[in-house]
Design a binder for these strands. Structure first.
Lengths: 129, 129
DNA sequence: CTAGATGCAAACTCTTTGCATTGCC
DNA sequence: GGCAATGCAAAGAGTTTGCATCTAG
């Protein structure tokens, strides 16, 4: 496997910092728009390439809503799920130990052997309740 | 609210029947391709419009994978989740009473009040294990 | 007969790519 | 200096829309 040096560039720092501060799902276009109003000089294609890089290093994760719109959010390492506030969009991370409850039930009731799972919760965060 | 008559047409019957038989997620393009090989006469745009109609009446539901690709699957009414076989793509429906376990924990530990949730399980179905 | 559905092609949106230039290390 | 990143513009992929025609009811 060929190692490939990843430079720390202005664009990457800006995109990563924005997502680290926002803690909510943003589309590439939204990120581009926000950075532009902060008078950053960068291209939309750079935002896409930066998000790809950040996703591959685990700094951000992406999701697609049912209509197919892709968004990105800052992410800690490790397996977890997202609790998404329906009011402000804030994303909390949720550990998944409780999912083990499902695993046994699924195997017993439906003979379905669970490998992976993807969970999204929608509701109101502490600030918005 | 204006009532709007929904005709039972050949295209709608074919798309709905295909999804009812397949019980797995199919993209609009895949549906179009399959129906074409069955010598059906219809346009891709009709598939899209049909899927929109079926989704609005609750006959199918759609999902987007993390890359944003949209797929559709036949769906029974009522709230439930999907167990998707990683081998054959077969989709089982799963009731969600166990999610209530999360609800209490989330509220207590993170002050997050749960409204909706979306869960996808990936694993091996009874046939593929 | 008439509202609704369809086919076809064009338009759109979102994302990716090629290539010359610029910037990090 | 050399490899990697960027900007810009063009290409792609997937989806939607306008409009004339067709069809279910």
């Amino acid at each position: 496997m060929v190692e490939r040096t990843v430079y720390s560039t202005s664009a990457r720092r800006k995109v990563a910092e924005l997502l680290r501060n926002e803690r909510r799902y943003l589309t590439a276009a939204a990120i581009y728009r926000i950075l532009k109003t902060q008078s950053a000089r960068l291209a939309l294609s750079t935002v896409y390439r930066t998000l790809e890089t950040l996703a591959s290093t685990g700094v951000v994760s992406s999701r697609a809503d049912p209509s197919g719109e892709l968004s990105f959010v800052y992410c800690h390492d490790g397996h977890h799920h997202h609790a998404i506030c329906t009011k402000c969009g804030h994303v909390d991370e949720v550990s998944c130990s409780a999912v083990d409850v499902f695993r046994a039930a699924l195997l017993e009731e439906q003979a379905f052997e669970l490998d992976k799972h993807a969970v999204e919760f929608f509701g109101r965060c502490a600030r918005c309740r």
